[in-house]
Design a binder for these strands. Structure first.
Lengths: 194, 194
DNA sequence: GAAGCTAACTAACGATTGTTAGTAAAAATA
DNA sequence: TATTTTTACTAACAATCGTTAGTTAGCTTC
């Protein structure tokens, strides 16, 4: 947003592009598709963006920056490991609900980033996962969690929150808040009653 | 395989296509890419397949048929609901490990199926999910499971097994068998110790 | 009001896409 | 061995791709 609250043309392009990338994939979306949604000719968009690659880059790194920042916040909170994991899960779901298309693109189409940026993105994600896994491993060491493999736990959690992007339509019988609660129950307490 | 154990050219094409689709996506993979892997010219492949669409169709429906058949088997087994879910989770992981590229394509690139086949595929998946969710709901009703929303439980489980395709490299510190055990612990018993 | 800048347009580029036509060699069948 | 079928090839097609060039209208700034 600019000062007056009206989004920049660039922002409109990024937003419409993300929606299309989510539905049809990065390669399956043409610059003319995006232009059609924005309401201009494909060539005109080059007054606002450098290339199609740059659109993808912008989306992917905006999301990965948010993830990393959120992790660092949580790491410094005075909470038990279980509570930290809960906060992270809630953050994931909230970002997904608020910024669905962008998160979706960062999750699926990042692989179309040009080589050098791809390794940068992959390393950022690896750092995030390492930090997340460390919280799990510490929770296991502290006896707070079961003796499950931290890597498996990590990816089970990350994948579980990822489906939200694919299936969740807010307000349809389940609010975002309830969704968070149920997913947290599933992941922290498990399906089986005891 | 044919009788003599040597795979048909068609099967080679489908297999190489699936590997490429998994890595670069359906749209990001050209017929010339596939031909290069198979070891022939792109035009020559049309002696064995009808179109690029048909390759995708073949892969997607082979996998969805397997899923549906496996579900029907499990439904008729004399097991508790918890045990049925465990079997389904193991089946998912095993199919993923054995048939990784095809499962990956059926999970991600199905959306590029031509319209009529797409609705057919989507309906097959909906039926599968409905059957799976019913097992969960019955388990909840029987008091075997926690009072978690069956839809949330369903997608949490399906997504959790889906990451296997993305991250699991067999033999790297974790066997397929151990992987199954840990995922099942995560999903059925939860991360937190009690 | 003149000058400069921004943002839109049309037209076109070279490259790549899936696919077809036509042909020749190889394999299978008689 | 003669005939038919299968499978590979080269060449080319129309369409679409991301992007650039050149131009023009409208806005901002002196």
């Amino acid at each position: 947003m600019t000062k007056n609250g009206k989004p920049t043309k660039r922002q409109v392009i990024l937003e419409e592009a993300a929606k299309l990338f989510k539905d049809k994939g990065y390669v399956g979306t043409s610059m003319r598709d995006i232009a059609g949604q924005v309401g201009m000719e494909a060539a005109s968009m080059y007054n606002h963006i450098k290339s199609k690659d740059e659109i993808l880059d912008s989306i992917c790194f905006r999301i990965s920056d948010i993830y990393i920042a959120q992790l660092h916040e949580v790491e410094q909170l005075p909470l038990s490991f279980g509570e930290k994991i809960r906060v992270l899960i809630r953050q994931h779901i909230q970002l997904m609900v608020e910024d669905g298309p962008d998160v979706s693109v960062a999750n699926h189409d990042y692989k179309y980033l040009p080589a050098s940026r791809l390794t940068e993105f992959t390393e950022a994600r690896r750092r995030y996962e390492k930090g997340f896994a460390a919280l799990i491993a510490e929770g296991v060491a502290a006896g707070e969690f079961q003796g499950v493999n931290p890597t498996v736990a990590l990816y089970t959690i990350l994948s579980a929150v990822r489906w939200v992007e694919l299936w969740f339509k807010p307000g349809r019988s389940l609010s975002a808040q309830e969704l968070e609660d149920h997913i947290i129950t599933m992941l922290l307490k498990g399906l089986e009653r005891r």
